[in-house]
Design a protein around this nucleic acid. Sequence first.
RNA 1: GGAGAGGUGGUCGAGCGGCUUAAGGCACUGGUCUUGAAAACCAGCGAUGGGGGGACUCAUCCGUGGGUUCAAAUCCCACCCUCUCCGCCA
Length: 432
Amino acid sequence: MLQLKWIKQNDEKVQTAADQKGINISIKELLILDEEKRKLRKKVEDLRFKRNKLSQEIGLLKRSGEDGLIEELKNKVKDINEKLLTIEFDLKNVENQFDEMMLQVPNIISEDTPIGSSDKDNVEIRRVGEPMIENKQLKDHVALGEMHDMIDIARGVKTGGSRSYFLKGIGVLLHRAVEQLAFDILIKKGLTPLEVPVMVRTDALTNTGYFPLGKDQTYKLVDENKWLVGSSEVPLVSYYANEIVDVDLPLKFSASSKCFRSEVGSSGRDVHGLYRVHQFEKVEQVVLCKADEEISNQLLLEITSNAEEILQLLELPYRVMAVCSGDMSQKTYKQFDIETWMPSRNAYGETHSSSNLLDFQTLRSNIRYRDENGELNFCYSLNNTAIASPRILIPLLENHQQEDGSIQIPKALQKYMNGMEKIVPVKMKCCK
RNA sequence: GGAGAGGUGGUCGAGCGGCUUAAGGCACUGGUCUUGAAAACCAGCGAUGGGGGGACUCAUCCGUGGGUUCAAAUCCCACCCUCUCCGCCA
């Protein structure tokens, strides 16, 4: 959410951002509603002023014992209240419409963001590592997972429905190893680790910008009237909701949590393997800082490079993309995605997403700080993936596979795998 | 799940139908005193929105939403949350 004052002064800029993000909203209409709201409110306030005055008079008369005039005054107030009733009703209506619309106003877009309509228009900024050349001998992660008895999608679907999976044996170790590696790196970088609630109230989702537009992506716990988060970004940002914080130094947090996404609207897409699943584990970084664009952009680079460092430790080829307007969400000001090479797709696939949201989330979440002059300001917030598994297992298994079917474990990961250097195929045990 | 207590500004906390325009303390800011600091004393100090060039001024805000009343932080109803005890439980 942007501040109304700011929207008024920059209505064209905001409208442009909406158009470029593909969000259907008319800022003009919003401002008309605001005008209407203010007019009605003025009327209500004037009437309330009169009522307050009369009521005070009644109080005074009562105390002095002069009861004579009281009935007359009471009737006057009753008249006012009757008028108020209809105007207040209209006001409420306009306010509701206005509030609903305000929740859909997008964040503006940074000047260096490429303009485009979909992920095809994202712009590559840099590549690190050499992609594996396509080779018929190569197996994809599903085949490798079966071969090593570490991924079982069929039984996952049998148990949990589409887009479900079991990890098994070494697969589980690997999954936990990449998480722990990422987590340790972030802690070393000074991020404070948190264990977070993944069942949250509606407010947390609205205030972090996931609702109302992303509602259909979110699982609801009907009886509890709570929701399952799709990212620990939600609880991490909400941690300081309605608080005044000290951001002389940026507040940096990380969490490792389960994430749940309904993936409504992507049926039929990425159905093969572990790419797009309903439940996964993600290590996330969230940063709160002063309302200073330079500082926040610096931090965006910092958290992005944290993610890159992890990919480098995993010895995976990747590229960094400047995400274009049409591929951005409502809340985003500036975004980098990291795509990791996935041999089975013969393409880079998105594994990380790094965003600067300015004060979009903190306005909704009401997270403020006092500046040098003692004035209250809204913080800026940023977030980025450190690692998300099992999606990262796709490039990890596929890029590190050897000709004999074994999988080389990157050095940095070995200590998290009890010193294991290589995964060798399990011998088929006679069990059927 | 059962019983009870409670939710008031940055924080603690009083108020429990009308001189509340939310007391008072703490914290914070400025000043006096002091070589400097502390202490003491004096002064200032909530948020949001509207009007005015401005000193100002008006409305709203006491967990949230309804209701009663001429008038609600205060009374009533529903919901949310916190704490204590009991029950259940990894």
